[in-house]
């Protein structure tokens, strides 16, 4: 598969349907990735295979186009979210994050989660928008740091087990971020 800059005429073959998401989108199989390249490549591929291109074609071609376009959408959704991307990379390496979820999280982490949650709950019940926004900025920082750590573990140091732990922490953090967002949204809406 050529790189994302190689423009016209992408050879769409049956192999692509079975290809992993990175190969499908013509990107190196690593955590850190060029988002602009991903976006560009996604649009380029959809231009080639989208069902709208085959509205007048025969049934077989229409079905094939739908399957490929579906697969490309799935690949894009997975790769553009850092959490899904990391999970996918680990899965590709034979590690099922879901199955690992029984192992305990570190006590420190759980403690910090509880503190976070308390602060969010307090700010929410006090309808303290400024505080919620502060927490929002703080968690965004934490999340950013966690992703750069993850990038090092996955792309440079091959510390798979740490990466699993990192991904699981990030699941908590992302969930928390969502809850804070919900709270901010609910308050702004009043």
């Amino acid at each position: 598969m050529s790189d994302s800059k190689a423009a016209p005429g992408i050879a769409i073959t049956a192999d692509l349907l079975g290809a992993d998401f990175f190969t499908l989108l013509g990107l190196p199989k690593r955590f850190e990735l060029d988002i602009a390249g991903l976006n560009e490549r996604f649009r380029q591929l959809q231009r080639e295979v989208h069902p709208d291109r085959f509205a007048a074609a025969d049934d077989a071609a229409r079905r094939a186009s739908m399957m490929l376009a579906t697969q490309i959408n799935a690949a894009y959704q997975t790769l553009r979210s850092p959490l899904k991307r990391a999970t996918y990379l680990l899965e590709q390496a034979g590690i099922d994050i879901g199955a690992e979820s029984n192992t305990a999280m570190s006590a420190d982490f759980l403690m910090s989660q509880m503190m976070w949650r308390e602060q969010v709950a307090d700010a929410r019940s006090d309808k303290n928008l400024a505080e919620l926004e502060r927490l929002q900025a703080e968690i965004a920082d934490d999340i950013r740091d966690a992703y750069s750590d993850l990038a090092v573990m996955l792309d440079q140091e091959n510390r798979t087990q740490d990466a699993v732990e990192g991904v699981r922490c990030l699941m908590f953090l992302e969930k928390l971020r969502e809850e804070i967002e919900d709270a901010v949204f609910a308050l702004e809406d009043l």
């Binding site: 073959t13 295979v49 291109r53 085959f54």
Partner: peptide
């Protein structure tokens, strides 16, 4: 195996003929 003929998908056989 080529799965999709991507050469000229969905184009009319004659370029000057419009399909309304």
């Amino acid at each position: 195996m080529a799965l999709l003929q991507i050469a000229e998908p969905g184009q009319s056989p004659l370029p000057h003929e419009t399909r309304h």
